[in-house]
């Protein structure tokens, strides 16, 4: 692989497996995953519950470590430097910190990354404005609806201007209308930032809106929809 190609690879998984527990009680969540995610790619990972989608996403985000194989981030740096910074994550459930208001929640990753308070607040306000959420800036998470909370979580990712956005079933607990708004926001944010977007979902309609996709079952990839598609590579 050339240096320029390597520069486009955001994440590389090489024979990755993740097993929880040991002995008879061990659960193999993912196994033999080899894949790459390139800059500006938009990928939907689908599959039934328990197929390993979330585990793979956590491995890609550096939130978890593989029990076999390796995960690397050639264009993003060390695992320790991923968050806050080049990787932004939208979680499945409520992920806003209850004692912080919306603006503070959005600004938090920037502050954690060392941005000054004034700059972080300005960037957070801009991100909220871009997603038309400014009116919610002073609200507490418990005062938001599920859809609003997820859009704020997207704004939090957007404020950090990541190069890779990972969204773990972001519409899983929302109705279709609210879910559509979230997916819109994610795609628009990724496009605006030129970031790659990897999204796990059960919803084929959501998956259809992204230009690439993998299907997972039993911890591994089923035949990809189009493995040659725009540089996305994967194997199982």
């Amino acid at each position: 692989m050339t240096a320029s190609e390597n520069g486009r690879v955001l994440v590389r998984c090489d024979g990755v497996a993740r097993t929880f527990g040991s002995g008879f009680g061990a659960v193999v969540a993912v196994h033999d995953i080899t894949c790459e995610i390139l800059a500006a790619q938009q990928v939907a990972i689908t599959g039934p519950s328990g197929s390993g989608k979330s585990t793979l996403l956590h491995l890609l985000a550096g939130l978890d470590e593989p029990t076999a194989g390796s995960v690397s981030w050639p264009a993003l740096g060390d695992r320790d430097a991923l968050r806050p910074g080049p990787v932004g994550v939208v979680f499945q459930g409520p992920s806003l910190l209850p004692p912080l208001d919306v603006l503070e929640n959005v600004a938090l990753p920037l502050l954690l990354g060392g941005t000054s308070e004034a700059a972080a607040t300005a960037a957070a306000a801009a991100a909220l404005d871009r997603l038309h959420l400014s009116a919610l800036a002073t609200k507490l998470p418990e005062e938001l609806s599920g859809g609003q909370a997820q859009r704020v979580a997207v704004a939090r990712v957007l404020a950090g201007r990541p190069r890779l956005i990972l969204a773990d079933e972001p519409t899983g607990q929302l109705d279709h209308a609210a879910g559509a708004l979230i997916v819109d926001a994610l795609i628009r944010s990724a496009t605006d930032l030129g970031a790659a977007l990897v999204l796990t979902t059960h919803d084929p309609l959501v998956a259809a809106r992204l230009n690439s996709g993998w299907v997972m079952a039993d911890g591994g990839f089923v035949t990809p929809r189009d493995p040659r598609e725009r540089g996305l590579t994967c194997s199982a």
Binding site: L82, P84, G85, S95, L96, L97, L108, L112
Partner: peptide
């Protein structure tokens, strides 16, 4: 869970 989310967002032990 609040601390776990903060940690997932990138908060270091010191923070």
């Amino acid at each position: 869970r609040t601390f776990a989310i903060a940690s997932a967002l990138g908060a270091k032990a010191r923070q």
